[in-house]
Measured scan of single mutants.
Amino acid sequence: QVALSRTQVCGILREELFQGDAFHQSDTHIFIIMGASGDLAKKKIYPTIWWLFRDGLLPENTFIVGYARSRLTVADIRKQSEPFFKATPEEKLKLEDFFARNSYVAGQYDDAASYQRLNSHMNALHLGSQANRLFYLALPPTVYEAVTKNIHESCMSQIGWNRIIVEKPFGRDLQSSDRLSNHISSLFREDQIYRIDHYLGKEMVQNLMVLRFANRIFGPIWNRDNIACVILTFKEPFGTEGRGGYFDEFGIIRDVMQNHLLQMLCLVAMEKPASTNSDDVRDEKVKVLKCISEVQANNVVLGQYVGNPDGEGEATKGYLDDPTVPRGSTTATFAAVVLYVENERWDGVPFILRCGKALNERKAEVRLQFHDVAGDIFHQQCKRNELVIRVQPNEAVYTKMMTKKPGMFFNPEESELDLTYGNRYKNVKLPDAYERLILDVFCGSQMHFVRSDELREAWRIFTPLLHQIELEKPKPIPYIYGSRGPTEADELMKRVGFQYEGTYKWVNPHKL
């Protein structure tokens, strides 16, 4: 086992960053958080920038500027975001240094004079007029057009580079997404736009490419001749908990499936790229999406959770019991969808996408189930092999396979070949997804960000279904809070070829 401390991990990262040409360590950078008073800024962006600063992973002359409508001070920003920093008493001095680099400007999102004030403020910072500028839009999409237009007109660096990070949702359907994309691309070049999907920053999602293309053993079996089906799962054990009003506007397909799960599907299904260059990788992902037809209604199961009468606390409440959810809402909190990649490698292999709230566990994984062994000599005792990439929690890679049961006879039983990170790298604290992705933006690497043509294809696949749901308002199937979801989803999976045995229990190697 390799035991690495946080300091050692960050030392390795620093070495990698400083050796590259793309990370300008000594240049002045300004990180501007648009929507600095909001939840995302408070819980994710400010803490992430602090962790990067604490670990010495930001360029040395980096300033952080918050911008929002609320009249706040840096002290206010500190008060609301610091509880999420997880700072230790030993880091007190470092924390003071961090907040000394912070400033805040209040202004409207659609007022040109406010942006001119913001620009004057940035120019007044040390070497601010020639600094590289990175704008993070932690804002609702309704203000994107006004904000990007004003940034472009008043706040661009004339000497350094300018980059803009856009948070999902990128529209509600193909038409609104196209409108937003066309607007942003009329102001910024594609190499300046970073559409963030934080799932692409997760260690195991990034590991998929290495697993596939750096190991000879997987190449020959990664196709329709050997793989019976692919299941991509995202499960949350909690409901909307008072935030249903926002969720109800989008629903589970827009929230998770059309982005996170579809991105994971691309990494499983794509061909080997010409290189690890950002556009070479994204070219292959677009090719996969172009091979997927629009979702067919007979390959869809929609569910909505109801309270568990035997549960406790939140578990007793259904989705419609959330006071922020519109009365009688038919918005799905669970969806199972089957897609097919219609190309030579994957023809006929079902890709089953499942996601839901208020389920029995927290889990995100990719599961490849292989065909049955031909010419069975073990009297149907063999179960199908599976390769599982567990994204969260407890990152893991393992192969479910058959071995001989101890004893006199040739009785096979299920076991696993474990390729888990935790076994080799004991207690290594890896940077989280937002840390990686923000560092990628500083480096100018777009590999783990969504390109406009990729986004367009993703919406093309799901828009007809979303429009049909909005028009017909089908009643989702009720499922109990804390269950596996509607049984109809299991029946759909069985119908397209997935075999669920229920006889195997994964042993978490992190707890051995």
Rank of each mutant, 00 (worst) to 15 (best):
R254S: 10
D255E: 02
V256F: 07
M257F: 09
M257W: 00
Q258P: 06
N259C: 03
H260Y: 01
H260M: 03
H260S: 03
Q263N: 04
Q263L: 02
L265N: 00
C266L: 07
C266T: 15
L267N: 05
A269E: 03
A269Y: 06
K272F: 06
K272Y: 05
P273N: 01
P273S: 05
A274P: 12
A274M: 07
A274Y: 13
T276W: 02
T276F: 03
N277W: 11
S278H: 10
S278D: 07
S278P: 13
D279C: 10
V281R: 00
R282V: 02
D283W: 06
K285G: 01
K285P: 01
V286H: 08
V286E: 10
V286Y: 10
K287L: 07
L289K: 01
I292E: 05
I292H: 05
S293T: 15
E294D: 14
V295C: 14
Q296Y: 09
A297Y: 11
A297K: 15
N299A: 11
V301W: 01
V301T: 09
G303F: 04
G303H: 03
G303R: 00
Q304Y: 07
Q304C: 07
Y305Q: 01
Y305M: 03
Y305G: 00
V306A: 13
G307C: 10
G307I: 00
P309I: 14
D310P: 06
G311R: 14
G311Y: 09
E312Y: 13
E312D: 12
G313Q: 08
G313K: 11
E314N: 12
A315D: 13
T316E: 14
T316P: 11
T316R: 10
K317T: 15
G318F: 00
G318I: 03
G318M: 05
Y319G: 03
V325P: 00
R327N: 15
R327W: 12
G328N: 05
T330V: 15
T330E: 13
A332R: 03
A332M: 07
A332C: 13
T333D: 02
F334W: 06
F334A: 09
A335I: 05
A335K: 05
A336W: 00
V338W: 06
L339N: 03
Y340K: 13
E342V: 10
E344H: 07
E344T: 12
E344D: 09
R345V: 11
R345G: 09
R345W: 08
W346F: 08
D347E: 14
G348E: 05
G348P: 01
G348L: 00
V349L: 02
F351H: 02
F351M: 06
I352Y: 06
R354V: 02
G356T: 00
K357D: 03
K357W: 04
A358C: 08
E361A: 09
E361M: 07
E361Y: 04
R362Y: 07
R362T: 11
R362V: 09
R362N: 06
E365T: 08
V366K: 02
V366N: 01
L368H: 03
L368E: 01
L368S: 01
Q369S: 05
Q369F: 01
F370P: 02
F370N: 02
H371K: 15
D372M: 06
D372H: 10
D372R: 09
A374T: 12
G375L: 12
G375N: 14
D376T: 08
D376Q: 10
D376C: 08
I377R: 07
H379A: 15
Q380D: 15
Q380E: 15
Q381C: 09
C382S: 15
K383F: 10
K383V: 15
L387K: 03
L387M: 05
I389R: 02
R390Q: 13
R390C: 09
R390K: 11
P393H: 07
N394H: 09
E395V: 05
E395K: 07
V397K: 00
V397Y: 07
Y398I: 03
Y398A: 01
T399A: 14
T399N: 07
M402D: 05
K404M: 05
K404Y: 02
K405V: 12
P406D: 01
P406R: 08
P406C: 15
M408C: 05
F409W: 12
F410I: 15
N411A: 13
N411T: 14
N411H: 10
P412W: 08
E413Y: 08
E414P: 11
S415W: 03
S415Y: 03
S415N: 05
L417V: 01
L417A: 04
L419K: 06
T420R: 06
Y421W: 09
Y421H: 05
N423Q: 13
N423G: 08
R424P: 04
Y425I: 06
Y425D: 06
Y425N: 08
K426N: 14
K426F: 09
N427T: 13
V428R: 12
K429V: 10
L430T: 15
P431W: 05
Y434Q: 04
Y434I: 02
E435G: 09
R436G: 07
R436A: 10
I438Q: 04
I438Y: 06
D440E: 09
D440I: 06
V441H: 03
S445V: 10
M447E: 00
H448R: 10
F449S: 02
F449R: 03
F449V: 04
V450H: 03
R451C: 01
D453E: 01
A458S: 11
T463C: 06
T463K: 00
T463P: 04
T463L: 02
P464F: 09
P464Q: 10
P464H: 10
L465P: 05
L466K: 04
H467I: 09
H467S: 13
Q468R: 14
E470A: 14
L471K: 15
E472F: 12
P476I: 11
P476F: 01
I477T: 13
P478S: 14
P478W: 08
I480A: 15
I480C: 12
I480V: 15
G482F: 04
S483W: 06
R484S: 03
G485P: 00
G485M: 01
P486I: 06
P486M: 04
P486K: 04
T487C: 13
E488K: 10
E488W: 05
D490G: 09
E491W: 12
L492Y: 08
M493Q: 15
R495L: 11
V496L: 11
G497Y: 06
G497W: 05
Q499A: 15
Q499V: 12
Y500V: 07
E501D: 14
Y504L: 05
K505L: 13
K505E: 14
W506I: 02
W506G: 04
